[in-house]
């Protein structure tokens, strides 16, 4: 039987209250939202917080709001709510692609976007999605609010810019006209972590060339975006040859490790193939047709 080590529990009534509780109970206090990453770690005694600060009552962190040029998503927004949101699907189809393959439907009822990003598991899907969409994370702490780019937020496996006495409150996605995105993952079975996954976003210029592109990889040993791969796309007309070249560079930028989910050459092959697929799909969604090779 897996049981967490003893801890004290407090339920926050507001963002301010959560910050005060974190401050009062010190470095061994930890925020809990959906709990689907933290509780399993506590059961395995990989995490042993002395205090849990439950933020599930903070309705002010549960919003999906389309503003001028930006989609604001509250940190406590559940995976299921993201998947059920029409505005999210319309503006950022990559989020729906990813959410369909994050854990399973029951887990998605509890897990949150803030929790996923905060956990920063290297095989976590939303980090890649946020990278590709060049999202920003809003963090509040004793010194007030700050907004950091996802690239800066994510400091490596299980490490982020959010300090122990701070709280992730919102994720902001810039809305770009003439753009689309896609995500695809290979997993051994429903609910498993990715063997490998890739995400891409593209923006088309008025002349039909690619104005901007971003490519990210999950569970493939790449921190941040595959910048060289995206760079070859910019200024070019979409074509199968171009997609193949970008995918080749993305695979080259990956550095997968062999584990029970597969050997290195297989994972590098997936980096190539999945990058092709997400680029094709993102281009299709934005209305471009890649000319055949």
């Amino acid at each position: 039987m897996q049981v967490p080590a003893p801890f004290e529990y407090a339920r926050a009534t507001s963002v301010q209250d959560a910050l005060e509780l974190l401050e009062r109970h010190g470095p061994e206090s930890h925020v809990i939202a959906g709990g689907h990453s933290l509780l399993p770690m506590m059961k395995l005694r990989l995490a042993r917080p002395e205090w849990l600060i439950d933020i599930n009552d903070l309705a002010e962190l549960r919003h999906i709001t389309e503003d001028a040029g930006v989609l604001r998503v509250g940190a406590l927004t559940r995976h299921a709510a993201l998947l059920g949101s029409d505005v999210v699907g319309r503006l950022f189809p990559i989020v729906h692609d990813a959410e369909k393959v994050i854990a399973d439907p029951v887990v998605r009822n509890r897990g949150t976007i803030g929790g996923s990003l905060g956990q920063a598991d290297p095989a976590e899907d939303l980090t890649t999605v946020c990278d590709v969409l060049r999202a920003q994370v809003v963090i509040v702490g004793p010194a007030g609010e700050r907004v950091v780019d996802v690239a800066e937020f994510h400091r490596g496996p299980y490490e982020t810019a959010c300090e122990q006495n701070e709280l992730i409150t919102e994720v902001r996605f810039p809305i770009r006209t003439g753009s689309a995105s896609a995500y695809e993952k290979v997993e051994r079975r429903v609910g498993d972590w990715a063997v490998a996954a890739a995400g891409a976003a593209v923006q088309l210029g008025d002349d039909g060339t690619i104005a901007d592109a971003a490519i990210g990889l999950t569970a493939l040993g790449l921190e941040g975006l595959a910048t060289d791969a995206a760079a070859v796309l910019v200024g070019q007309r979409p074509s199968e040859d171009l997609i193949a070249e970008a995918a080749r560079l993305a695979a080259e930028a990956s550095s997968p490790v062999e584990d029970q989910r597969g050997p290195v050459d297989y994972k590098r092959h997936l980096a190539d193939e999945l990058t092709r697929r997400v680029l094709r799909r993102a281009l299709e969604r934005v209305g471009a047709t890649a000319t055949a090779a």
Partner: peptide, 15 residues
């Protein structure tokens, strides 16, 4: 009304 895995929720959180 929503399905939840009760091995990964605290009684305290269900208060």
């Amino acid at each position: 009304g929503e399905p939840v895995k009760s091995c990964t929720a605290l009684a305290a959180m269900t208060d």
